[in-house]
């Protein structure tokens, strides 16, 4: 028998939903719908949208490759000062993204601690490149993935891993065949968060990678600059970004969770 939903939970839940959705509704109400199709199919918007999707996806791959092992280390590794390490990993979450961008410049810029050697030895310069956009987005988005995967790992029952070990599986095999499948929902949730955060990234991107159409101008940068001269165009661009991201997230998430 199903009991009735308690009002103490339902009322704040509805208020919370409204709080999140009303600003979006405002954007939709104020949108100049007539100019939406022309904006949507203009070369500049297409370019920025494509760049946004490519960079956010690449940044998510970088985060998965580096972030899942990091989460595993934080959850399972027997490290001294693990609490401090865990706190440090979340620093990009609290850091204003513009500061993150300046920090990246100081390290990976042409005169940066590491960047000057990249420039001298390999002729690689990351600022003002698409690779720079991916780096800036990955820097800001990775904590979302790490926290989510680490939470899942810590909640998972370690006895299955122990059982695998007693049956002779190596730690790598255990990780691939036992640990990873058991925390898959956490990895998926983290990936979704990470991708969404990377897609909306503005501050670190414009500070570290600058703004140049086709190379580093992602949708959030295009929205910001449109706001200076043409607020209507900025609203249209925001809606395009919103629609595309909601479509991708809704589509992919269902597929992953069913799998």
């Amino acid at each position: 028998m199903r009991s009735r939903l308690p009002v103490v939970l339902v009322l704040p839940a509805i208020a919370g939903l409204a709080f999140l959705l009303v600003p979006l509704a405002g954007l939709l109400v104020k949108a100049p719908w007539a100019s939406l199709p022309t904006q949507l199919f203009s070369a500049e918007v297409g370019q920025a949208l494509r760049l946004s999707l490519v960079c956010a996806s690449l940044a998510t791959v970088v985060c998965l490759v580096l972030g899942v092992p990091l989460a595993w280390l934080l959850a399972r590794g027997d490290l001294p000062g693990r609490g401090l390490l865990r706190a440090l990993v979340t620093v990009p979450l609290v850091l204003p993204p513009v500061v993150g961008g300046v920090a990246l410049l100081l390290v990976l810029g042409r005169r940066g601690v590491v960047g000057q050697h990249l420039d001298q030895w390999f002729g690689i310069s990351l600022p003002f490149t698409t690779a720079g956009v991916v780096l800036a987005e990955a820097f800001v988005a990775m904590p979302f993935l790490v926290i989510s995967v680490e939470g899942a790992l810590r909640a998972a029952d370690p006895r299955y891993e122990e059982a695998a070990a007693t049956l002779g599986a190596s730690r790598w095999l255990t990780f691939r065949r036992v640990t990873l499948p058991s925390v898959m929902p956490g990895v998926v949730a983290g990936t979704v968060l990470c991708w969404a955060r990377a897609l909306g990234e503005f501050g670190a991107t414009i500070t570290f990678a600058g703004n140049f159409p086709g190379r580093t101008t992602t949708m959030p940068l295009a929205v910001y600059l449109a706001l200076e001269t043409d607020p209507d165009a900025a609203i249209v661009l925001s809606i395009v970004l919103l629609l595309v991201s909601v479509a991708v997230l809704a589509g992919l998430r269902d597929r992953w969770i069913r799998a």
């Binding site: 410049l105 003002f128 140049f212 940068l221 600059l225």
Partner: peptide
């Protein structure tokens, strides 16, 4: 032949003062 079109003067000067 600009490498970046910055959002304001301060952002431009940050890049100049850092030597980027």
């Amino acid at each position: 032949a600009p490498d970046t079109l910055e959002q304001d003067v301060k952002a431009v000067l940050t890049k100049v003062s850092l030597g980027e």
